[in-house]
Nucleic acid binder design. Structure first.
Length: 683
DNA sequence: AGTTTTCAGCGGTAT
DNA sequence: ACCGCTGAAAACTAG
């Protein structure tokens, strides 16, 4: 049964209403910094040349390319936004044509030179004419494909689109990627670009029905394109940590490990330095992926018994060669080996998740007999001390799932009192505070006033659900001709407004165009942070683009909004009119966000988990306006999605944005996000 | 749940 | 240039 979408569901059943939690003043990350005065110029707040710009995620993309996340921007638009730093709202839009302007050679190439000595065939060339190496590669892969995939012209589409996407990346990004050593930014950019490519390819493939039986692998296609164009980081194989990849980082595809330089083989479990490349006399192991495919076992979280490779699926003895030899040599050498743990994730259907578990050393090796009776090499790896928790966090969560009592610091097992499909627990393991201030848990928007339809229609008629390629679907039309979500529900592209199906549509609740209407999909918890009051995090891994929650609360009008400034300040306001700093590299656009109309929500008295999300200048969550058709009018909601893959127990944060100009009496808050790109305050 | 099918990087070896 | 190996991943089959 579908969860009530009513406007005012406030579950308060039983004699004790647990949704009213103890009365303690919430802190969030709000510490008043300085009273707003007219000359409190934020000059010192713009660090690292990152301007506050008004960002519209819909931007000058060529036809057929819908931008995915707001981190692509043409050099032209970037220049404009810098020029218009002081008046972000008045920036002129970049004409679509300007996108097509050929990037000057020197510019587009400057990110990739031969200085790493590795990129012989990796010089970036996004021009329509392909390089020799690229041509060769494509011919070769065609040949390998043989009879498959005949006549589908999909390669042309994909390559053209991929080139257009890569061309639209800010050259500054390539400067970062081109550093011989990786960095957090480089890893982040690489993965974001990969997501864009992969999803775009998914979308293209999604459109053409047919070709059943042909394994479409957008993950591999995207990876290949990036590797061939040199859009990657840590391309030099090395022993020890891969700079920019942090212990605990999660990945959903083997190709992701590859492009960030964590583990280069696309399939094999052991990565090693061969004799040729290293100056060494012997091969040395660099990293392993432990996926449980062999008869491995782990004594505890810090010890791993890893099986060697080969042996023809257990039908013959393994030999001391390749990866096995490298592991043996590394045992004697005592060098560090990166370990990636592959896990089966229940939430990800049929999917695996890879957790970077940090550096290990090989302590022992022996020959074992497999069940089939053949020889298997075994290696005992021990985790180096002093590294952040990673794999053990997953094991802890598994334990909590089995019996909730084993979790220390639990205040409430479910602060929603059943209002959500999944419980949201309340935890404090840092001090004695018993919970945030009173509020009523409400998963939906109250006081929602459907307003003038943006694009009048009676809703769609897709009785069986909206499907890609159905151009008769009015909802698909409003989204520019395709569904905004992938089959697994992640947001595929980032228009300024997402048009979902609504009450007026004929499609069922499980329609793929109703992703934000199904309630929580991840087990979230509200927890006490060390210095920012209460915060929000997830027990489950969250993939980039996944829907997390909407901003619930009471919709208020502009007049009421004015009252809430100054003395009566409301720390639980969502204000769609704020100005947002570009996310990381983001931003693209120069026109203001095209939200249909200003939306103000207060979650002080009524709200959902979103009210606990703290601000960060380097957030891992972003929001999009969602419009749903409702009896000839439009409902507007705010949906939060993951910017990138978010490991379990990582705090969820979004950019609160800033108010320009500050209202009378309104104060700026000292930002405690601690990110390297912190702009010191927010509103 | 198992099986089948097509994947793509990279070390090693042969040109 | 090729060969061959490989703890992938999706789709399909069977139960």
């Amino acid at each position: 049964m579908e969860q009530s979408m009513g406007q005012d569901s406030v579950p308060a059943h039983g004699s004790f209403d647990k949704s009213r939690v103890l009365n303690v003043k919430p802190l969030r990350s709000l510490v008043p910094l300085f009273p707003s005065t007219s000359n409190a110029a934020p000059s010192s707040n713009v660090q690292g040349g990152a301007p506050f710009v008004s960002v519209s995620p819909s931007g000058p993309f060529p036809p057929g390319i819908s931008p995915f996340y707001p981190f692509f921007f043409s050099p032209e638009s970037q220049r404009l936004s810098e020029q218009n730093l002081q008046t972000p709202a008045g920036v002129a839009a970049v004409p679509i044509n300007s996108f097509r302007t050929p990037t000057p050679r020197g510019r587009s190439n400057r990110g990739f030179t031969e200085e790493d000595g590795y990129s012989n065939s990796q010089q970036v060339n996004f021009d329509a004419t392909e390089t020799d190496t690229e041509e060769g590669g494509r011919l070769r892969s065609r040949k390998k494909k043989g009879k498959g995939r005949l006549g589908s012209g999909s390669d042309v589409d994909v390559d053209a689109v991929a080139n257009d996407i890569l061309k639209s990346i800010n050259p500054v990004v390539f400067d970062v990627l081109n550093q011989p050593d990786g960095s957090k930014d480089a890893v982040s950019y690489t993965l974001l670009i990969y997501e864009v490519l992969r999803r775009k390819i998914t979308q293209i493939e999604d459109l053409k029905e047919g070709n059943p039986g042909v394994a479409r692998r957008p993950d591999l296609r995207a990876g290949t394109i990036m590797l061939s164009k040199g859009v990657r980081t840590n391309s030099k194989k090395r022993i020890g940590a891969a700079p920019g990849v942090e212990v605990g980082d999660i990945f959903f595809f083997r190709m992701e490990l590859c492009i960030v330089g964590l583990h280069s083989p696309s399939m094999a479990g052991i990565d090693y330095l061969g004799i040729k490349f290293s100056q060494e006399e012997e091969p040395l192991a660099v990293s392993i992926v432990s996926s449980g495919g062999y008869e491995d076992n782990a004594e505890d979280g810090d010890v791993l018994i890893y099986s060697g490779q080969g042996g023809a699926k257990g039908a013959s003895d393994q030999k001391l060669e390749r990866g096995n030899l490298a592991l043996e040599k590394s045992l004697h050498r005592g060098n560090e080996v990166r370990v990636i743990r592959g896990l089966r994730d229940i939430a990800t259907p049929g999917g695996k998740i890879y957790v970077y578990d940090g550096l290990y050393k090989i302590q022992d090796s022996w020959v074992d007999k497999a069940k089939t009776g053949f020889n298997v090499f075994k290696y005992k790896l021990v985790r180096l001390p002093g590294q952040p928790e990673a794999y053990t966090t997953w094991k802890s969560i598994l334990q909590w799932s089995e019996k909730s009592t084993s979790r220390v610091g639990t205040i409430l097992p479910d602060l929603t009192s059943g209002a959500e499909k999944l419980p949201v627990c309340l935890v404090n393991d840092v001090d004695n505070e018993k919970g945030p201030a009173y509020f009523t848990y409400s998963p939906t928007l109250k006081n929602l006033k459907p307003t003038n339809p943006l694009d009048p229609s009676a809703g769609c008629n897709c009785v069986g659900g909206c499907l890609p390629g159905n151009y008769n679907c009015s909802c698909i039309q409003k989204n520019g001709g395709h569904l905004p979500y992938a089959p697994n529900g992640v947001l595929l592209d980032l228009k300024s407004v997402i048009y979902e199906c609504g009450p007026s549509c004929q499609c069922p609740p499980n329609c793929r165009n109703r992703i934000t209407q199904g309630g929580l999909k991840f087990r979230l918890e509200v927890f006490k942070t060390k210095n920012k009051g209460w915060g929000l995090r997830s027990w489950d891994p969250i993939r980039a683009g996944a829907f997390i929650c909407e901003y619930a609360g009471e919709v208020i009008d502009n007049a009421r909004m004015e009252e809430l400034g100054g003395e009566n300040e409301d720390d639980y306001i969502f204000d769609s009119t704020r100005i947002y700093q570009q996310l990381e590299i983001f931003p693209s656009e120069t026109e203001a966000p095209k939200i249909p109309y200003p939306l103000y929500i207060t979650a002080r008295n009524d709200g959902n988990v979103a009210r606990f999300m703290n601000h960060s200048c380097s957030p891992n969550v972003f929001w999009r306006p969602v419009v749903r058709e409702n009896k000839g009018a439009s409902d507007l909601h705010i949906a939060f999605h993951a910017v990138r893959h978010i490991p379990p127990m990582t705090e969820l944060t979004y950019d609160y944005g800033i108010v320009l100009p500050l209202k009378a009496g309104q104060r700026k808050k000292k930002c405690l996000c601690g990110s390297a790109k912190c702009r010191d305050y927010f509103c």
